[in-house]
């Protein structure tokens, strides 16, 4: 049984259908990447998993139970965390407050978990009281990741975590992602920096125009000339 199974999902906004019978699955400890051109529906896919967009057809099961139609807060509570592409930190809250919000669902004192998480992100430690709006792009991205870890999710959904970052930061982010994955967390990744992402992925899917195009092991897709030509750029 897959950890997360998306079966023939059709979803969109209002009258516009964006995803057409898209299927995808991910198992424990896997790092799965979704690549594809802009507008192919990758972000919509994540929003559908989270319950922000309601699918009109198809089913999504998480840990064996259907979650299509479940309210977002419950999905998060059940163990799926999400980092959006943009506006992914609370800019007027400090780093610590952002992390506290990450743990909102849990009652009790979050300080222990905060210390734990900050161990993974040492650069954020001495800036803990700084408002997130004053952080650099790379630091914000790290904070966004850290926030998502506060609930010990079973799956982490990351929407283009390296978008707009400098090359050094991109490397650092991918390293972090691998580190998190190696601790046992499943990660579903959307990436434009497809080449780098495929290098670290167990498996990957190619999505275009809201349809599944290809899928396979990360390395295989990386070495696939079609994929390289169409989706990985020059």
């Amino acid at each position: 049984m897959n950890l997360l199974n998306i079966a023939k999902i059709t979803a969109g906004y209002g009258d516009t259908e964006i995803l057409h019978k898209v299927s995808l699955n991910i198992d424990k400890r896997e790092l799965v990447t979704v690549v594809g051109p802009n507008g192919s529906g990758k972000s919509t896919l994540m929003k559908t998993i989270l319950g922000i967009v309601k699918p009109t057809k198809g089913n999504i099961t998480f840990q064996g139970e259907s979650i299509a139609g479940t309210p977002t807060q419950e999905i998060v509570r059940n163990g799926i965390s999400y980092v959006p592409q943009a506006y992914n930190v609370f800019t007027s809250l400090s780093i610590i407050e952002n992390l506290e919000m990450g743990a909102f669902i849990n009652s009790g004192d979050p300080s222990k978990k905060i210390s734990e998480v900050l161990e993974l992100f040492p650069d954020l430690v001495d800036k803990r009281k700084v408002k997130a709006g004053y952080l650099s792009g790379g630091q914000r991205q790290m904070l966004a990741l850290a926030r998502a870890l506060m609930l010990n999710p079973a799956i982490l959904l990351l929407d283009e975590p390296t978008a707009g970052l400098a090359p050094m930061m991109i490397e650092a982010v991918f390293e972090k992602i691998q580190l998190i994955n190696s601790s046992g967390m499943a990660i579903l990744l959307i990436e434009q920096n497809a080449r780098e992402a495929l290098k670290i992925s167990n498996r990957a899917y190619v999505l275009a125009a809201g349809h599944n195009q290809l899928d396979g092991k990360g390395k295989d897709l990386l070495n696939n000339p079609e994929v390289a030509r169409l989706y990985l750029g020059g």
Binding site: I52, Q73, V76, P84, T91, G102, F104
Partner: peptide, 19 residues
Amino acid sequence: KAMRATADNTELARVTGIN
């Protein structure tokens, strides 16, 4: 703090799991 977070970014608040 959750109120401040929600005013700051309502969508993110929901996705973070804030009630």
